[in-house]
């Protein structure tokens, strides 16, 4: 297997893309799950506020999602731009 400079750079960027998105998905996945868990708990305790609680849950999850989107952006940049 002949390894040249440009080949090595491409290989590194592909590996980087996979690891960026793969490892980057762990945090938001767990974090958003915790938000969902607490929202279910709160609705169980106080069903009257279900609408407000669902809205708050979605906003919280959206913020937590941002790190996953950063990972996606970096992975796409590594794949198609670098």
């Amino acid at each position: 297997m002949a390894i040249e400079g440009i080949d090595l750079i491409k290989a590194a960027s592909f590996l980087g893309a996979g690891l960026a998105m793969g490892l980057g998905a762990i945090g938001p996945g767990v974090g958003e799950g915790m938000v969902g868990a607490k929202a279910c708990e709160a609705i169980g305790k106080n069903p009257g506020e279900a609408g407000l609680l669902t809205r708050t849950m979605l906003v919280g999850q959206a913020v937590s999602e941002s790190t996953g989107i950063y990972s996606l952006v970096i992975a796409l940049l590594l794949l198609f731009v670098v």
């Binding site: 590996l15 998105m21 793969g22 998905a25 762990i26 938001p28 799950g33 915790m34 969902g36 868990a37």
Partner: peptide, 21 residues
Amino acid sequence: VSAGLCIGFGGIGPGVGNGMT
């Protein structure tokens, strides 16, 4: 290899999170 690592690691967090919810 990277494709496998990507979905492999990427599945851990959502799996645990969905379970917590």
